[in-house]
Write a protein that binds this DNA or RNA. Structure first.
Lengths: 154, 154
DNA sequence: TCAATATGTTTGCTATATCAAATATAGTTT
DNA sequence: AAACTATATTTGATATAGCAAACATATTGA
């Protein structure tokens, strides 16, 4: 059991963390080559807000793995940086209608283009079969994480 | 290209992000069942600091995917919460000797035990072959992220 | 209609991520 | 020894993560 650490860098968790971090760094750099004042997280929220305006903030949060607080603050920043504007929704005054500015519309196009390029480039020489295998493993892992305990530890 | 979003939740990136987030939540909950005032990130740093004291803070950062600033602040917190104490290293006064307190030593044992249980449980019904397949894919992805550009975008 | 409950968002607090700049010390060169 | 360079860590600023509490509005049920 004392080799927990020697093993750590060979675990699947290490590989997954490393993979996602490298991808995020890559994607942020590439995004900054066309837009300088936006993060990749904000960019994804921006796409959802504009392309699927029927979604509530909390639904966007679920789709992007962010909690409500984060979505609120990211939208604030997008408004501050002039990508979006926002008005209270008169049908349900708890929610908002969020609209893109001109800058926001232009940005969306650039984001979609660069995202498509990024995906192609990062998935170069990876087959669909490999992608499916990995998704299956990740799904098993997710299921195992969420299984209720039968006994022993909580 | 307009289906970037419809596709988003079916991409490998979505699966990876989801997998790692679910695992982190799972691991944090399980850790909190034995230790209440420590995060999983701090716990990993604590293990490295204590089990491999020859490592510098920046080396620990590399091994745990954290930058120097994060490691500094995490160690500060571990000291504040009485897991560690720290003295200037007289051989190289830029660095520190970091030592576990009694609380720290007890915690390390608990962390190793719970970590081993977590890994077993989360990898239940996942074969070594599947693990290797996934690691291979992630490695390809990492390599692709780091390839220098030949032409077009930077 | 009023109270209770549910839903959607915001705010507050603390931890971590990222980048850049600042410090401190070591090691090297002239 | 002084200047230069390299290494190790810290600090500062801003963004995001996660949780809990607060707010605001809607909906439901008595």
């Amino acid at each position: 059991m004392d080799d927990i650490l020697e093993l750590h860098h060979r675990t699947i968790f290490y590989s997954i963390e490393r993979g996602i971090k490298e991808y995020r760094k890559f994607a942020q750099k590439r995004l900054n080559s066309v837009l300088t004042d936006i993060t990749i997280d904000q960019a994804l929220v921006l796409l959802y807000v504009i392309k699927q305006p029927q979604l509530s903030q909390s639904e966007i949060g679920s789709l992007t793995f962010k909690d409500n607080a984060s979505v609120t603050r990211m939208i604030e920043l997008l408004i501050k940086n002039n990508y979006l504007s926002r008005y209270i929704n008169q049908e349900d005054r708890r929610t908002y209608n969020i609209l893109p500015t001109h800058k926001g519309k232009v940005a969306v196009k650039k984001i979609m283009e660069i995202t498509e390029l990024n995906r192609k480039r990062v998935l170069k020489n990876i087959t669909n079969k490999e992608l499916e295998q990995t998704k299956r493993l990740l799904n098993k892992l997710i299921v195992n994480c969420n299984e209720t305990d039968h006994g022993q530890h909580i």
